[in-house]
Every structure is written in C-alpha cells, then in structure tokens.
C-alpha cells in the first residue's frame, strides 16, 4: 500500500473545465483585492506576506504535487538573498539583475542539492535536505562576504529598470505583487501542464509511473530545481524589500517555518501556502513582543494542525464545501 495521505488535501476544487468560469472569476476577484489592499493595510506588511507566500508556494510545489517534503528550503531562500544582497551592495548591480543572479544561484544550488537528495525517498529525503541545508548554513556562516552574525546590511533599493522608483512603499508593493503573480502563474501553469500530471502520477505511485516509461528521477529533479529557483526568487525579492540579508533566512528554523505555513494553509492546495503565510506572518507580528513564546506558539500550531487538521485551513474549507454540495 502506497502512502499518499499527505496529498489528499482537497486539491483545487475548481479544476474541472465546467467550473472554468467560476474559478476565473475567483482569481480576478482576488487580484482586484490585491490591487486595492495597500489602501487598507500597511504596504510593508503586505510585501512581507507576498515574499513569504511565494516561498511557501515554491515549497508546496514540491510537497503538494511531487510528494517530496523538503526540510531544507531555507538554503535557497536565504542563499539567494545573500547573493542578491552582495551583488547589489558590493558590485552595485541594478535591482532586476540582482534578483536574477540570486535566482540563478538558487537554481544551480537546487540542481546540486537535488541530485543528492532525490536518491532517497520519503522521510530520508526530508532528512537529507535538512542536512544539506545545514551544511549550506555553515558555509555561509564562515564565508567572509556574508558578514557573519551581522549579515549584509543597507542593500540599496534601486529603481527597477531604471525608472520605477521603489523607495516609495506603495510602488514597491506593486512591483512585488507583479513578481508574486508571475511566480503564482508559473506554478499554476506547471501544475496543470503535462509535466505536472506526470509529477502527480509519480507522487501517487512511483513504481507505476516508472513502469509507464517515465524517468521519474528526472521529473523529480526538475520539480526540485523549479521549486529551488522560485524559493530563491522569494528570497531575492525579500532582500530588495528589507535591504538586509541575514543568517536567520538560512537556518533550519526558516526551513521549518515554510513547512508550518504550508501545513497551516493546506498542503497541496493552490491557495493554502498564501493563506498560511498570511496567518503566520500576522501571528508573528502580533506576538513579536512575546519573545520565546513565539516559538512555543508555532510549535503548538504544528502539533494541533498535524493532530487535528491535516488538510489545513484551505483544505478543510474545500472539504466542507464538498460536503455541503
């Protein structure tokens, strides 16, 4: 018996061709909400949510559609932020190239880490990615350019393409929203492409996919690399927003946080990672003054979600809607 339970989270309820219209309307409404959001909410908070949500979406691509739990995604997120920060601060590169080099770095790191990690499955895969990320953490810690405990500070916010001034927080928000929508659509296309279908088949039954003639390791590697690149995009964008790249973003705690966000929102759901990111970031903002209790509360959230609501917020809602129907 194959273990597929982790992915039964309701999926995307609006996938059938018959519901195409209603789902398009849903996406348009959400986009409209995102466009007017800065009028109501603090733009920097929204930008943070978008960066982290993109990170979670990248992580979810791997677990939700490839069945692979990476416990080391911070190496891509934090790694890209170091490279982007360094390129912009020390080399004086423009914003778009700075982000690009961060993404290229995380993609290449994804190839190397992926080649090693996909040699094991299931929980071993999780342990291997965790260990590799810890290795990357130590390397960054010891490299002089990362600034050790201080990190890379005062990364400039240069105008995007030379004319979009992102010193203004609201403009910055729309730039980040554009990057986010690009990432979201990229993932959406990937999931619904033939590649995504094969990935799903591998997740459900790898042996059968192999017997159908698919080189499953190649597919898994490609999914891993795509996920790493997108996680890097999120990290690179974050460094542009907050103008700082620190050790925090490459720690195992950060790898754990993205797992938590996706779990809270719903593993393997389209919107789960976004909802989870919003919930966790909000929680962190409110609890910032409680110090160590933030960790405890995150831990309690983990335990509650795993014990009682494995489908996450979005998954539970989708299941509820299905039941009503």
């Amino acid at each position: 018996m194959k273990r597929t339970d982790i992915n039964t989270a309701g999926g995307s309820p609006a996938q059938g061709p018959g519901r195409f219209n209603s789902s398009t309307i849903l996406y348009l409404v959400l986009l409209a909400l995102a466009l007017v959001a800065p009028a109501v909410l603090y733009p920097i908070f929204l930008v943070k949510v978008l960066c982290v949500a993109l990170f979670a979406l990248a992580f979810n691509l791997l677990i939700g559609y490839g069945g692979l739990l990476s416990f080391g995604h911070a190496m891509f997120f934090g790694g890209a932020s170091y490279i982007t920060g360094h390129a912009m601060l020390v080399w004086g590169w423009p914003t778009e190239l700075g982000i690009l080099v961060g993404v290229v770095f995380s993609t290449l790191l994804g190839v190397v880490a992926g080649l090693i990690a996909i040699r094991r499955q299931g929980i071993y895969f999780a342990m291997v990615t965790l260990a590799l990320a810890q290795m990357v953490y130590f390397i960054f810690l010891q490299m002089p350019f990362t600034g050790g405990e201080d990190g890379i500070q005062n990364v400039p916010r240069r105008a995007v393409f030379g004319f979009i001034d992102i010193a203004n927080d609201t403009t910055l928000y729309y730039v980040v929203l554009t990057i986010f929508v690009f990432g979201f659509l990229f993932i959406y296309r990937t999931i619904h492409s033939p590649f995504g279908q094969v990935l799903k088949a591998i997740r459900e039954n790898e042996d059968r996919a192999t017997s159908l003639g698919y080189h499953t390791t190649r597919f898994k590697l490609l999914a891993f690399v795509l996920s790493a690149g997108l996680a890097g995009l999120a990290g690179a964008t974050k460094v542009v927003v907050f103008q700082i790249a620190t050790l925090t973003d490459v720690t195992w705690q950060m790898s754990g946080e993205v797992v938590l966000m996706t779990l809270v929102g719903g593993l393997g759901t389209v919107f789960g990672p976004v909802v989870g990111a919003a919930i966790i970031i909000t929680m962190q903002d409110y609890l910032a003054t409680f110090g160590e209790w933030v960790l405890v509360i995150q831990g309690v959230t983990f335990v509650i979600m795993v014990s009682l609501f494995r489908r996450g917020v979005v998954g539970e809602i989708a299941a509820l809607i299905n039941r009503v129907r």
Partner: peptide, 14 residues
C-alpha cells in the same frame, strides 16, 4: 510517516 516528523518538529519548538 511525514506527519510524525512534522509533529515532533513542533514539539522541538515547544
């Protein structure tokens, strides 16, 4: 089995 790992990770944080 991944859920067991996630649960015990939560216990680490707590």
């Amino acid at each position: 089995h991944l859920y067991g790992m996630l649960l015990t990770f939560g216990l680490v944080l707590i």
